[in-house]
């Protein structure tokens, strides 16, 4: 696969998704970048804005196995990963057989993930990071590519369990799904209330997605781009050597190295999407918000002042210079 083919596929995927999902261009691009990076996405938005529809359409366009898990407070880990059940064969012999849970899929929609207990949320940890599930001491690899696309409602917080930092860190992006504008709502009404509901057609398959993921890792990233990513992440740490002003004031703990990995990988994917074989600082800056916003642990003062992580990330990006040498002689 080369860049032209990658771009062509990307545009076709966008086109097919666009038949089903109205608007949300940034969210769609973010989800696709995460897919090309092999990362997971946490979608945050109010109910009814098309989060689930986007994921389902994506699974169809990429022709991947799709499963949906509706997270509820009484959901147990076994309900997610599966469990061993006692099965009797026709000869009457009984044996424990592993009954696979809905996690054994390629695109898993973890709907309203924050409604499940932390114990159940944690069941996703191994799957998201190791692409495997261990039950009763036996490890079961997950079929690649594997994506978890979780959703959560930012308004209704009663009876929810906020995701722990370790869980949040596993997500490549946290994307906010905004309420669509008037034109988009009209378009949605027109498409969904008629006799024919448009459907997306598959344009790729799992192997294609894997090749696309491999190509992303071939993208060149110059040392100054990598340094910039490192500097950005470093600046989010208030205890670090060079914290940004916003981080020093509002952040209790900054982004992890995994965040830096996610940011650079996503920048590479974005470069490919834009037809380039190299990642640039501009790519990094463009993706800093979805890649870092969920990795910052804000302090009490930020909570009291109503400061959000987005603002802190924007301030950090604003403050950290691109490359010191580039500013010389201006």
């Amino acid at each position: 696969m080369d860049i032209q083919e990658f771009q062509s596929l990307y545009h076709r995927i966008r086109q097919e998704l666009g038949r089903v999902v109205v608007g949300h261009g940034e969210v769609v691009e973010g989800v696709l970048l995460a897919v090309f990076c092999g990362g997971h996405v946490l979608l945050e938005g109010v109910p009814g804005v098309g989060k689930t529809l986007l994921v389902k359409a994506l699974a169809r366009v990429l022709e991947l196995k799709f499963s949906r898990i509706q997270f509820t407070p009484d959901l147990m880990p076994a309900d997610v990963v599966g469990t061993n059940v006692l099965v009797q064969d026709p000869e009457g012999r009984r044996a424990l057989t592993f009954q696979r849970g809905p996690i054994f899929s390629q695109i898993v929609l973890a709907d309203e993930i924050n409604r499940a207990t932390p114990k159940t949320q944690s069941a996703l940890l191994e799957a998201m990071q190791e692409y495997a599930v261990t039950v009763a001491g036996v490890s079961y690899p997950l079929e690649r590519p594997f994506f978890v696309l979780a959703t959560q409602n930012p308004i209704e917080m009663e009876g929810t369990y906020p995701l722990p930092e370790a869980q949040l860190d596993r997500f490549l992006f946290k994307l906010r799904v905004p309420f669509p504008d008037t034109e988009s709502v009209v378009e949605i009404l027109e498409r969904t209330t008629g006799s024919r509901v448009p459907e997306a057609q598959p344009v790729a398959d799992a192997q294609t997605v894997l090749r696309m993921q491999a190509l992303v890792r071939e993208v060149l990233a110059a040392p100054h781009v990598q340094a910039y990513v490192a500097r950005l992440v470093e600046a989010t740490h208030p205890q670090g050597p060079r914290p940004a002003r916003a981080a020093r004031r509002w952040v209790r703990y900054g982004a992890s190295p995994r965040g830096a990995q996610a940011l650079l990988l996503a920048a590479k994917a974005r470069a490919l999407v834009h037809g380039r074989a190299h990642a640039s600082v501009e790519d990094v800056r463009a993706l800093a918000l979805p890649a870092l916003r969920h990795r910052l642990l804000l302090n009490f003062e930020a909570d009291a002042e109503g400061v959000e992580a987005d603002q802190v990330v924007r301030d950090v990006v604003e403050e950290v210079p691109e490359v010191a040498a580039a500013s010389a002689g201006s």
Binding site: D2, I3, L215, E218, V219, L220, A221, A222, P223, H224, V225, R276, A277, H278, A279, S280, V281, E282, D283, V323, A325, A326, G329
Partner: peptide, 30 residues
């Protein structure tokens, strides 16, 4: 860096200097 910034080259020249015209990537020719 100067050329990248003034001509909106999106770090092409800086990456070129850093890569030095050789590297393991399949995308190098491109």
């Amino acid at each position: 860096h100067w050329l990248d910034r003034r001509c909106a080259l999106q770090d092409r020249m800086a990456t070129y200097v850093a890569v030095g015209g050789a590297g393991p990537s399949r995308l190098l020719d491109h």
